[in-house]
Design a protein around this nucleic acid. Structure first.
Length: 839
DNA sequence: AGCACGCCGACT
DNA sequence: GTCGGCGTGCTC
């Protein structure tokens, strides 16, 4: 796939010494130079993985970024220990991309590599100790702990540092290890663990001795005479592998599991045959995706409007690299994608189709699988690491020309991309939060397309304001799809004024009268209801009636969320849990009331209000187990559930024909969130959720409960008027210099001590202002939740003009200042986290 | 990041 | 005297 650099193509007469600059998966902003052993000269390539020793003993996987003949000036380069790939697993273009990511998102190229490679392709070593077999410890004085450790080693043979530390109940085990290894009683070594395990299948075949008609018949007679059970084994084998017809069939053998699954065959007879040398066992490596069938021949039928859109997109691609497809929910964007994917694949290029995490369900995968069969790879975080490695290798080996995947799929080693589709491009889950690089997959997709001369199609019913702006100013091409598929109608959205309802005392447990009524009617019609409340748990906090005390997390500055079913209070930020207190910790009162409501309470209350309805809840808490999500969806699809209460989990990618009512709670919390994107978010989320109501023939109904029915954004959601929402929003953005009119960089300063965080933040802000100017640097400011996991947090926000041409030096400057503050002794190693284009 | 190593204070 | 706490510097 990749050509070796030409200068090494003709092997020179004299041996040359090659050096490799490698990327290590560490947050160190430079490449490290290792020496290539001569015997590898002819086969090393840029993009291959190597194993190197780093530091005193640590052994790591690195990727070769550059090959050259320049020996390092100031140090002796170590040898590469092992070359893991004879073909590159990372392309030249990717290394270029990694560097771009590191520069753009202000992190090291090693951090990029670290998130790019599936962990199964990286190895790390672990320090191990074992007894020195030649040791004599008669005349050696030992401390108690040393004695204890040696005793344990006698039993266990080997121990990792950590195991030893746990056993000795010591935090610092280093002294003991050092002392023992100096006395030559133990050996310290590094154990390398390769995490990727190819899937192996155990198989059985006849040994050479029986690959002959006469011999087999002799065996038959013998077994028949004795009425041996082994005869069944042999017959089963011959039925599946008709060696009499073709002796070479034996080579491939038969899977051992086939014998196992046959109830008439006992395992011991098979084992006896193996023991007696009739059969032999062997293993083969198989693909984890081996059982995937090739595609059916599939005729995609597009509506005339859909084919028009396809044509228009193709036309636009002639002049624009990126096109935005603005298609309302249920307008059939997927068919358009499929048609385009087929076209691009036919032209011989690769395609990447990105979806947000939650939308990438088995439903869509199954549908695509029917069409693209084994040409398609799936890259999902729910997949095991081994599976991810196989998709990666499949792309390298050109086995997959098309991959559907989540955010991290942008790192797959394509070298000939024709098209990247980013569906639901506005989704915040495309932005990585932790760890660095904090990249946005949509923006990375645009960059990859640029590097590979590919095209990008962004799709959304509610595009990000930045994206829509780019389409408006002509940077992106633009196509709209304004009709629902099959002429289905958009749902009717009703805003219920909760202030009025409250006055008239018509609210029962957070359910307004109209909502409750509609729920009942819908169930009566045997149709389904989705209720949306973007808050899990029973209630956001408990409150002592007598003294007002609220249980808070001891590690974070938030109240603990009440989870009634689990009988617990939980922190949603650090995972802290405690049993629900029966009495107030402050005054001892037994009157603790729950305040506010989450999905759990909505579910419980509705069960009381409508005892005959079948009500289920879908949120993080009910879908944590492996198949819980899938099971819930199947039940709902099968009509075994009337009402599904859920968080945003229910807003994505689920299309159910029988849902005719959607209820939305606590709308005001979304609308009045203190963030410049709150209106956009609310518009997107509520439109998305509303879109679940009514498909095909029936018009759906959406009931939005709010205290502010006159809110502009709500009105625009009601009228399904994205355009008008955008026009209003873009003016605000311009007025206050927010994206797309500026670029944002947010710096978070974290420290255990509040004062250190504050002082460091102040100092950093000052340093930044010196050069960037006062108005460009905002803060430091405490975020809404200013302490998480015992770390105090301060935010600095930098606004840079979009037109600023020399972005690179500015970013470099910012990174430098952050580095300075981090290393400043006054601030006791504060943590500084840079987030470029925060969302 | 991880680790070696050094210096300091607090315990058996 | 050990033990454990950091702080610091380095890794080809």
């Amino acid at each position: 796939m990749l050509k070796k650099p030409t200068m090494f193509e003709n092997a020179p007469a004299e041996r040359i010494t090659l050096f490799a600059d490698v990327i290590l998966p560490l947050p160190i902003p430079k490449l490290f130079t290792y020496r290539i052993p001569f015997e590898l000269n002819e086969i090393v390539q840029v993009g291959a993985r190597v194993i190197v020793q780093f530091g005193n003993k640590k052994v790591l996987t690195a990727v070769i970024a550059k090959l050259h003949q320049t020996p390092p000036q100031h140090y002796q380069a170590k040898y590469i220990l092992e070359l893991l790939d004879t073909e590159p697993i990372v392309t030249f273009k990717q290394i270029e991309l990694f560097q771009w990511l590191a520069d753009y998102y202000l992190c090291s190229i090693g951090e990029v590599l670290n998130v790019a490679l599936p962990s199964g392709m990286k190895i790390t070593s672990q320090s191990m100790i074992e007894l020195n077999p030649n040791a004599t410890w008669e005349n050696i004085e030992l401390s108690e702990k040393e004695e204890k450790l040696l005793q344990l080693l006698k039993e266990k043979k080997t121990l990792s540092y950590n195991e030893a530390a746990v056993f000795l109940e010591l935090k610092n085990i280093y002294h003991i290890i050092k002392s023992l290894s100096q006395k030559e009683l133990i050996i310290v070594y590094e154990e390398v663990k390769e995490r990727y395990q190819p899937k192996k299948v155990k198989k059985i075949r006849l040994t050479r001795d029986y690959l002959d008609k006469a011999d087999l018949e002799k065996l038959f007679k013998y077994l028949e005479q004795r009425e041996s059970k082994q005869l069944d084994v042999l017959l089963l084998y011959l039925r599946n592998v008709p060696v009499f017809r073709d002796w070479t069939l034996n080579e491939n053998g038969l899977e051992k599991s086939i014998f196992r699954s046959n109830p008439h065959i006992s395992n011991s007879s098979l084992e006896t045959l193996i023991k007696n040398g009739v059969f032999e066992e062997f293993e083969v490596i198989v693909s984890r995706f081996a059982d995937i069938q090739p595609a059916d021949s599939y005729e995609l039928k597009l509506t005339s409007e859909q084919s028009e859109v396809v044509d228009k997109i193709m036309d636009l691609f002639a002049e624009k690299d990126t096109v935005l497809l603005h298609g309302i929910t249920g307008s059939g964007k997927t068919e358009i994608y499929i048609d385009l994917i087929q076209k691009v694949l036919e032209s011989g290029s690769q395609v990447l189709y990105l979806l947000p995490e939650i939308a990438l369900t088995t439903q869509i995968v199954a549908r695509l699988r029917k069409i693209f069969g084994d040409k398609m790879g799936v890259y999902h975080s729910k997949f095991s690491d081994n599976e991810r490695v196989e998709v990666w290798k499949g792309v390298v080996q050109q086995k997959f020309s098309f991959v559907v995947g989540v955010r991290s799929a942008v790192f797959l080693p394509f070298d000939n991309l024709g098209l990247i589709i980013v569906d639901e491009e506005h989704e915040p889950s495309y932005k990585q939060q932790e760890p660095a690089p904090r990249y946005h997959a949509r923006d990375v997709a645009v960059m990859i397309a640029h590097l590979q001369h590919a095209k990008v199609l962004l799709g959304s019913a509610t595009p990000a304001v930045e994206t829509y702006y780019n389409a408006q100013i002509g940077k992106y091409g633009f196509v709209a799809l304004r009709k629902r598929y099959g002429n289905a109608q958009m749902p009717e959205i009703e805003l219920v004024d909760m202030k009025e309802q409250r006055k008239q005392k018509k609210i029962r447990q957070n359910y307004s009268e109209p909502l409750l009524q509609h729920i009942q009617e819908t169930i009566q019609k045997q149709e389904q209801v989705i209720l949306f409340q973007n808050r899990r748990g029973y209630s956001p906090y408990l409150n002592c009636v007598d003294c007002g005390w609220i249980p808070k997390c001891s590690n974070c500055n938030v109240s603990l969320v009440y989870h009634q079913h689990a009988g617990e209070l939980r922190c949603h930020y650090c995972g802290f849990k405690m049993a629900t207190p029966q009495t107030c910790f402050a005054c001892g009162s037994t009157k603790m009331k729950s305040v506010g409501y989450g999905t759990e309470k909505l579910e419980d209350d509705l069960k009381l209000l409508l005892p005959n309805a079948r009500i289920r809840r879908m949120d993080l808490d009910t879908t944590r187990q492996k198949n819980a999500y899938q099971n819930l969806i199947q039940e709902f699809e099968a009509g075994q559930i009337d009402v599904l209460v859920g968080t945003q989990m229910i807003s994505k990618g689920l299309d159910f024909d029988k849902v005719s009512l959607v209820g939305i709670f606590d709308t005001d919390r979304l609308l009045y969130f203190a963030d410049f994107r709150s209106q956009e978010r609310a518009f997107q989320l509520l439109t998305q959720v509303s879109g679940r109501a009514g498909r095909r023939e029936t018009q759906g109904k959406v009931i939005v409960q709010t205290n502010n029915p006159e809110n502009h954004t709500l009105q625009k959601i009601k009228n399904n008027n994205y355009e008008s929402f955008y026009q209003e929003e873009i003016l605000e953005r311009e007025k206050y210099h927010y994206p797309p009119f500026s670029r944002l960089i947010r710096i978070a300063i974290k420290h255990r001590e509040k004062d250190y965080a504050q002082d460091a933040a102040l100092c950093l802000a000052e340093l930044l202002r010196e050069k960037l100017g006062k108005p460009r640097v905002l803060g430091p400011e405490a975020p809404l939740i200013d302490r998480v996991r015992n770390q105090y947090i301060k935010h600095i926000l930098i606004k840079l003009e979009r037109e600023k041409t020399n972005l690179k030096p500015v970013k470099h400057f910012i990174a430098q200042q952050c580095q300075k503050v981090m290393l400043d002794k006054r601030f006791k190693s504060v943590q500084v986290v840079i987030d470029v284009d925060p969302i």
